[in-house]
């Protein structure tokens, strides 16, 4: 594991991801994403999602961001998908007929057409004009990839990946980080509001 991390780290400092590796992983990730959408069984969909998430974690590894990769595995591939599976099984919708209940015939083709249109539009705007990072007046990139206070430019192993991340989180992004506390309070209060059994009797009369 450590060797893999180090190897990945070294690779990324120069930002030379092996193209064969990249395309192979990309193919698997896209196959997983397609599987999420087309599989009839919701449990299979969730498992396909795990596949995509893990491949994305590997992408982060190849970009010398082991910290993000591990977070990706822990949060997305584990916690969130397990939550999905819980919900699927609790609601008992792990049978495929539940998914085949769209009553409007035009929705599916229309959705597909709009999705393809968006995809085409995005590809058309991005391709041929793909440049990352700050640019000079002529539109030429100043540096290969924007750096987050040197997250990508430090090299000395795992701790150095985490330290700049923590540093930015508690200095540059301190307020953003603090405000997420409000989100957590809302989540708790909201869960109580929505899940609590009403103590009052249900309304009997309809009009006042």
């Amino acid at each position: 594991m450590n060797a893999l991390l180090l190897a990945a780290t070294k690779d990324v400092v120069a930002f030379h991801v092996n193209p064969v590796l990249f395309y192979a992983l990309a193919a698997i990730a896209i196959a997983g994403a397609t599987g999420v959408v087309i599989s009839r069984n919701p449990v299979h969909s969730a498992l396909f999602l795990v596949m995509t998430m893990i491949i994305i974690a590997v992408f982060f590894l190849t970009l010398s961001a082991p910290m993000v990769a591990i977070v990706q595995v822990i949060v997305y591939a584990s916690a969130i998908v397990v939550l999905f599976l819980f919900v699927i099984m609790l609601l008992g919708i792990d049978r495929h007929e539940m998914l085949a209940t769209d009553d409007r015939k035009y929705q599916r083709p229309a959705g597909a057409a709009l999705g393809l249109l968006t995809l085409g539009g995005l590809i058309a705007t991005v391709i041929g004009n793909w440049q990352l990072g700050p640019q000079t007046s002529s539109g030429r990139a100043l540096s290969a990839i924007p750096t987050l206070d040197g997250v990508a430019s430090t090299t000395a192993g795992e701790t150095d990946q985490i330290r700049p991340l923590a540093r930015t989180l508690f200095t540059q992004f301190a307020w953003q980080f603090q405000v997420t506390a409000v989100l957590l309070v809302i989540a708790v209060v909201g869960a109580v509001v929505l899940a609590r059994r009403s103590t009052r009797p249900a309304r009997t009369e309809v009009s006042a």
Partner: peptide
């Protein structure tokens, strides 16, 4: 962020100020 290298609106504005509008990338 990928196109300008920052999420700060001020820095994005500065960054867009130096780039010729015709050279704006698809990103």
């Amino acid at each position: 962020y990928g196109a300008t290298g920052s999420t700060s609106l001020t820095e994005i504005a500065t960054q867009l100020g130096v780039v010729d509008p015709k050279a704006h990338t698809g990103l």
